[in-house]
Write a protein that binds this DNA or RNA. Structure first.
Lengths: 170, 170
DNA sequence: TATTGTTGTAACTAATACAGTTACAACGAA
DNA sequence: TTCGTTGTAACTGTATTAGTTACAACAATA
């Protein structure tokens, strides 16, 4: 499974606008030919970037422009704008073993050697709360979310300006 | 877009085996009822974990056992076993703008203000190499790969033993 | 040996997501 | 008014996935 290519296309769009915007009208057709994707796809992504206030697009007139400064615009901004992950969860966790905690807890794992009869796989909770009922499940989600955070933190460190400088140095 | 739920199911499987394996025959049916997914899905994932030498599964007899010690078995091992990402790329990068570098480079972005006529979007390359031809594209991929690495490093830090200890402390 | 419970796997379905595409109304400038 | 462009809806084809049914292979055991 892979993450949508919207993200990498969006970054390519932003970089192209940042680099060429001042000397070239960056229409969806132009960007499409640069990046080799369909113009409608470009417009769809530009719409998302616009909605996130990262770029402005001139309807009728044509062309897109950066709103957010390249020195503060990070890959994380773009990542959020194109909704790479939904519900803030990169890892598509499976459903909770039980939507509502079963009373007898007969099928839930228990900790080996534990004196307690407390079931590891659940906690007392009311089903109205959005909270998870399974300890194991919760523990897994916490660690997966940490990993996602590490990825996002890496994206936050990369500004468009930094990338342009790297490209200039080639 | 989300990553396959195989990963979180696989982690749940491993944790359940690690915690209950010594006192309970962990058949695919048992695991399925614990985790609330289909037994065939469990068997498919167990097959991947077995292939990666993380667990052993007893055909006929029934039951699965950890091969790799919980203290050295990390979430990254499981992540690799279930092939969360293919071709080591989490981010589904769009295709190279051109499979083969065009001679005139007419549609490629050039750096603003650069004296050089060198095209940013490509480098001289032969199309037989698997190497990328587009500087911008390469630069994007490098940064996305760094982000992926950060996520994977986070997974490497989490052992199954650590998770079991966390669960015991509840 | 026959039975039983289980694994391994193939085949199919339904759901979901996505990029590509066509079409067209709305928009702004000349 | 014309022209180039954006914004968006609608549809297609492709790909992946979980769920499901079915069944052969396997091992223990009665």
């Amino acid at each position: 499974m892979k993450i949508s290519s919207r993200f990498s296309i969006a970054v390519h769009i932003v970089l192209t606008i940042a680099i060429l915007g001042s000397k070239q009208k960056t229409t969806s057709d132009f960007l499409a030919s640069c990046i080799s994707v369909n113009p409608v796809v470009i417009r769809r992504i530009l719409g998302q970037l616009k909605k996130a206030d990262l770029v402005d697009v001139k309807a009728g007139e044509g062309g897109a422009f950066l709103i957010k400064n390249a020195s503060t615009l990070t890959l994380f901004d773009i990542y959020q704008a194109v909704e790479v992950v939904e519900d803030i969860s990169l890892f598509n966790s499976h459903k909770q073993p039980e939507l509502k905690c079963p009373v007898d807890c007969s099928s839930c794992p228990r900790l080996t050697g534990s004196e307690s009869e407390e079931c590891l796989a659940q906690e007392s909770c009311d089903d109205s709360s959005g909270e998870s009922c399974c300890y194991i499940h919760n523990n897994i989600e916490n660690h997966l979310f940490s990993a996602q955070k590490a990825m996002e933190d890496s994206l936050k460190e990369t500004t468009i300006q930094k990338m342009i400088l790297e490209l200039s140095a080639l």
